[in-house]
Structures are given as C-alpha cells and as structure tokens.
Simulated assay, not measured.
Amino acid sequence: MKKIHQVLTAISQLIKTIETDYPELYQFLDENPVTIPSEKHPDLDKDTLEGYLADLNSLLKHHIKNHTKAK
C-alpha cells in the first residue's frame, strides 16, 4: 500500500500531466465529485485520495481512448 504522501505525489504528477498534455481535459477536473465535499469538514484519508487518483486515471484513459490529440 502506498503512503499518503506517495498518493498525493502521484495525484500532483497526474494533474500536471493533464494540465500540460491535455489542457482540454483539465477544465473538467473541477467538476469531479471528489473535489466537491458534501461534508463541512471532510476526512481526506488515504482511501479517499486513492479513489481520487483512480478517478483521475480513469478520466484520462477514457479521454485518450475516445479523443485523438491534435498535432
């Protein structure tokens, strides 16, 4: 299992990749339900962060599969 700082590093790197290589996808990151907590003081534990990382990976894989990158 990864430690929290490793998960946060992976999230940061993936977001940077999306921002740099797929700017058309970057605009949708704010709409991810994980980024909009329903609680006043949400608990962002390792499982929550790993779920967010998995969501980001899925979003990117879906985008790559369904959209060709303009060159």
Rank of each mutant, 00 (worst) to 15 (best):
K71M: 02
A54S: 12
K40Q: 09
K69G: 05
Y52Q: 01
S38P: 02
I4D: 04
Y22H: 07
E39N: 11
K65I: 04
H67G: 05
I18R: 05
K2V: 06
P33D: 03
L29N: 02
I15Q: 12
L49P: 00
N32A: 03
K61A: 11
K71T: 09
L25G: 00
K3P: 00
E50L: 12
D21Q: 14
L60I: 01
L59Q: 05
K3T: 09
I15K: 13
Y52A: 00
H67F: 03
K65R: 13
H67Q: 07
A10N: 09
T68L: 13
S38R: 15
L59E: 02
L60D: 01
D21I: 02
H5E: 14
K65F: 13
A10L: 03
D43V: 09
H63Y: 15
Y26L: 01
I4E: 07
T20S: 11
M1G: 07
P37A: 11
T68H: 15
L44Y: 09
L59I: 06
L49V: 03
S12T: 07
A70R: 10
K61V: 04
N32G: 00
N32R: 02
D30E: 12
K65M: 07
H63N: 03
G51M: 05
E31S: 15
K40H: 10
L49G: 00
Q27K: 09
S58A: 10
K69L: 15
N57S: 08
T68D: 12
E19F: 13
A10W: 00
S58E: 12
K61N: 04
G51A: 01
I15A: 11
L49W: 09
L29P: 01
T48K: 08
K71E: 06
K40C: 10
P42E: 04
I64T: 07
D43N: 15
D47C: 00
E39S: 14
I11S: 00
D30I: 06
D55N: 13
H41A: 09
L60T: 05
K46S: 08
K71I: 12
D55R: 03
Q13W: 07
A10P: 01
Y52V: 00
T20V: 10
K65T: 12
T17M: 12
D45V: 04
V7D: 01
S58K: 15
K40I: 14
Q6S: 08
H63L: 05
Q27S: 11
E31P: 01
N66I: 05
L49Y: 06
S12C: 03
N57Q: 15
M1C: 09
K61G: 00
I36G: 00
Q6V: 06
T35W: 14
Y52D: 00
I11A: 08
P33G: 12
I36N: 13
Y52N: 00
Q27W: 03
K65Q: 15
